[in-house]
C-alpha cells in the first residue's frame, strides 16, 4: 500500500517535471519566433529606408541632384545606420564620387566620434574604421591618437586608416608605433606601409638602418622596402647583412637584396650560403642565383643536395615569384637528372 503511494508520488513528480519542461520549451520557441519576427520587421524597415535613399544617392552621385536633398530624409535615430549605408558606397567608389559620399557623411560623423570613447573595443575599432574611411580629413587627430589605444584592434584600425590615406606624413605616424604590432604578421603591416608608395622609402630606410630599433620593427621596414623594390635600400641592406644577428632580420634583408639588389652585392651575400640556418641559406642561395649571371650547374647541384629539403623548395619559390623562369627550369631539370 505504502509502495503504491510512493510510486504514485514519483509518477506525479515525473509528470509535473515533464509538463514544466514542455512549458519551458514552448516559451523558448515562442521567444525565438518573436525575435525572428522582430528581426524580419527591422530588416524590412531598413530595406524600405534604403529604397528611399538609393535613387537619391545615385542622382546626387551623377550630379543631377544637389547633395543637400538627402539630409532631409535621414531621421536622427537613423544616423548610424545611414553612415553604415554610405560605407557600402565608399568602399566601391573613388574620385569625385567618393568625395561626394564623404561630404554626405560629414554631418553625421560627430556622433560617431563619441563612440571612440566606448568601453567596448569592437565599437571603438569600428568607429575608427568608419571615420577613417569617411572623415579622414576632418578627424585626423582622433585617428592618430587611436594608435595609442589600449586595444591592439583599435590601433590596427587606425594604422590601416592612416596608411590607406595615401599620405606619407600620416603613414609616418604609424612607423613610430610599429612595436605594438609585433603579434601581427610582418608582411601585412609591410604591405600597408608599401601601399603608400615610394614617398615612404626614405623614413623606412632610416628605420631599417636604426640599430637601436627592435629587430621585429626593422623586419617590417625591410619587408616594406622589398615590396617597394627600392634600389637605394638594397645597398644599405647588403651592408647591414654583415652585422645582423637576428635570423628574421637577416632573411628580410636578403629578401630585399633579392628583389632590388645588383651583382655588386654578391660578395656580401655569398658568405650566408654557408649559414647553419636553413631559411637564411635558402634566401641566400636564391639571391645568388638571381644576381650572379654565372650561377653554375655546380651551384644548382649544391642547392639540391642541401641537408634541408626546404632549401631547394624555397629557392624555386623565390625565383618563380620574380619570374626567373630559366633558372627554375634549370633547377627542375637538374632535379630530374638527380
Amino acid at each position: 500500500m505504502i509502495d503504491d503511494l510512493g510510486r504514485d508520488r514519483v509518477f506525479l513528480g515525473l509528470a509535473l517535471g515533464i509538463l514544466a519542461l514542455i512549458f519551458m520549451a514552448i516559451a523558448l520557441i515562442g521567444t525565438a519566433v518573436r525575435f525572428r519576427i522582430r528581426n524580419n520587421e527591422t530588416s524590412r524597415a531598413w530595406a524600405r529606408r534604403e529604397q528611399g535613399w538609393d535613387p537619391l544617392i545615385l542622382a546626387v552621385l551623377s550630379g543631377s541632384q544637389p547633395d543637400e536633398v538627402i539630409h532631409g530624409l535621414v531621421a536622427p535615430a537613423d544616423r548610424f545606420y545611414f553612415i553604415e549605408y554610405l560605407m557600402r558606397y565608399a568602399r566601391r567608389l573613388d574620385g569625385p564620387e567618393r568625395s561626394l559620399i564623404e561630404k554626405l557623411a560629414a554631418p553625421y560623423l560627430g556622433a560617431l566620434v563619441q563612440r571612440i570613447a566606448n568601453r567596448d573595443e569592437s565599437f571603438r575599432a569600428r568607429a575608427i574604421r568608419t571615420i577613417g574611411t569617411l572623415g579622414q580629413e576632418q578627424y585626423r587627430a582622433e585617428i592618430v591618437a587611436a594608435l595609442d589605444d589600449s586595444s591592439d584592434l583599435v590601433a590596427m584600425a587606425a594604422a590601416r586608416s592612416l596608411t590607406q590615406s595615401g599620405s606619407p606624413e600620416l603613414a609616418t605616424a604609424v612607423l613610430g608605433k610599429l612595436a605594438r604590432f609585433r603579434q601581427w604578421r610582418p608582411s601585412l603591416i609591410a604591405s600597408m606601409l608599401a601601399r603608400v608608395g615610394p614617398a615612404m622609402a626614405e623614413p623606412l630606410r632610416a628605420l631599417m638602418a636604426d640599430l637601436s630599433a627592435e629587430a621585429a620593427v626593422r623586419v617590417i621596414a625591410v619587408e616594406a622596402l622589398a615590396e617597394l623594390s627600392d634600389p637605394l635600400a638594397a645597398d644599405e641592406a647588403a651592408r647591414l647583412l654583415a652585422g645582423a644577428t637576428d635570423r628574421n632580420l637577416v632573411v628580410a634583408l636578403l629578401g630585399l637584396v633579392f628583389v632590388a639588389g645588383r651583382a655588386e652585392h654578391l660578395p656580401l651575400v655569398r658568405p650566408l650560403v654557408g649559414s647553419a640556418d636553413a631559411p637564411v641559406r635558402a634566401r641566400a642561395f636564391a639571391t645568388v642565383a638571381r644576381l650572379d649571371p654565372a650561377f653554375s650547374a655546380a651551384q644548382i647541384a649544391e642547392v639540391l643536395q642541401d641537408e634541408s629539403p626546404w632549401v631547394p623548395i624555397r629557392v624555386v619559390e623565390a625565383l618563380e615569384s620574380v619570374g626567373a623562369r630559366r633558372l627554375v627550369d634549370d633547377i627542375n631539370a637538374a632535379a630530374r637528372r638527380a
Binding site: 551623377s62 566601391r92 567608389l93 573613388d94 574620385g95 569625385p96 564620387e97
Partner: peptide, 8 residues
C-alpha cells in the same frame, strides 16, 4: 580597377 569613379 575597383574602387572606381563612375565619371571616369
Amino acid at each position: 580597377r575597383k574602387p572606381f569613379s563612375p565619371a571616369e
